[in-house]
Structures are given as C-alpha cells and as structure tokens.
C-alpha cells in the first residue's frame, strides 16, 4: 500500500516501528464464502419456506450473540491487557475475519428474521407479545447504530493504520479502546436480546 510522505512537524517524535505480520484488510478468499451465504439467504427469502428462514435466523442470531458476548466480556478485557506488540498481532489476525463475518451474520439474521416474522405473524401488531417484538427492534436498532457508527469504522481504521509502513501506536491505542468499549456495550445489549428472544419463544 502506497503511503504519502508528508512533512515532518517540528517537535514531533516519530512513533516507534511496530512489528506486525502481513495481512489483508478484507480477506479476498473469504468473499467467496460471503457470496455463497448471500445467495443462499436470497433463495431462503424467495422461497419463504419456514425451515430455511428459521435456519438462517437461528444460526445467524446464535453466532451474532455468542460472538458479541465473547468479544465484549472475554476477549475484549484480555485484549485491553495485552502488550502493544501482542495486541497488534492478535488484531491483525482477528479483525480482518470480523470485517467479513459480522456484516454477513448480521444481515442473514435480520433479513431472515424479518421474513420469518412475516411468515409466522410475529411482526404484526395483532401478535399477543407485540411489545416484546418492538423491544427487539429497538435493541437491534441501538446495536446497529453503535456497530455501524463506531465499531466498524474503528475496526477498518485500525487495520488501515496497521498496513502503513510505520503504524502510529497512539492511533491504534485510541481506536482499539473505542473498539473494546463498543464490544462491551454490544455484549450488554445481547443479554437484552436473549431475554427478549426467549420470552418471544415461550410466549
């Protein structure tokens, strides 16, 4: 990746060089898998059959919840305590995969979930637990705004910074802090999702 060379500002100490393995910000081979999932998802929505819709919604939802909980409450605090080189190495291996996994899992869960709700009538205002359904919309909405507005930009920015010949450790530190806090908030929101979804399941 070509990096523009700017002027050296006075009194500015260049950050120390950070060792990091070579990586792709978006793993291109993984795009094939994403495309396959996307095609199968469209087929599931087009067929409007109960099983494929339930499969995508349950599998995607379980993956989304587990990843958020694990990242927010287990991996996040661990990453926060790692040394900078260890954190960089971990980040360059984890985050490119997250760039592909999370949008795919979230899109599959929500698109199939909505269609499943239409199929079963759970999204209709006449549904007995309609208040809980609306609560799930609100929780997902809050998670979407945090993930799209803060977490994903931070993820991409960290990876872009790490691709530079001389990554700035202060920028990485700041963005990683944002990433870890967001993951924690999303973990808490996922607990709310579990409460709502179990309530909707048992009625």
């Amino acid at each position: 990746m070509a990096i523009s060379a700017g002027a050296v500002a006075p009194e500015t100490v260049p950050p120390a060089a950070i060792e990091r393995p070579d990586f792709e910000i978006v793993p291109r081979k993984g795009l094939i898998l994403v495309a396959v999932v996307g095609i199968l998802l469209i087929a599931a929505i087009a067929s409007n059959e109960l099983w494929p819709l339930a499969f995508f919604h349950f599998v995607g939802g379980a993956a989304w919840t587990i990843i958020d909980l694990f990242l927010g409450f287990v991996l996040g605090p661990i990453i926060g305590k790692l040394s900078v080189p260890a954190r960089v190495e971990f980040t360059t291996r984890l985050m490119p995969k997250m760039v592909l996994i999370m949008p795919t899992v979230v899109t599959a869960t929500l698109a199939a979930g909505w269609q499943l709700g239409v199929h079963l009538g759970t999204v209709e205002s006449s549904f007995p637990n309609h208040g809980w359904t609306v609560a799930s919309f609100i929780v997902v909405g809050v998670m979407a705004v945090i993930a799209l507005g803060l977490l994903e930009p931070a993820n991409i920015a960290v990876l872009t910074e790490l691709k530079k010949p001389r990554p700035n450790s202060l920028v990485i530190e700041k963005l990683m802090k944002r990433f870890i806090y967001c993951a924690g908030v999303l973990g808490v929101m996922q607990v709310a999702t579990l409460v709502i979804m179990t309530k909707l399941t048992v009625g």
Binding site: V8, A9, P15, L175
Partner: peptide, 11 residues
C-alpha cells in the same frame, strides 16, 4: 487518522 501519518517521516 491518516492525516497523523503526515507527521511521520517516510521510510
């Protein structure tokens, strides 16, 4: 954050 790169000398 790319702008902070301008303060770093080119290798």
């Amino acid at each position: 954050y790319d702008e902070s790169d301008q303060t770093v000398p080119a290798p």
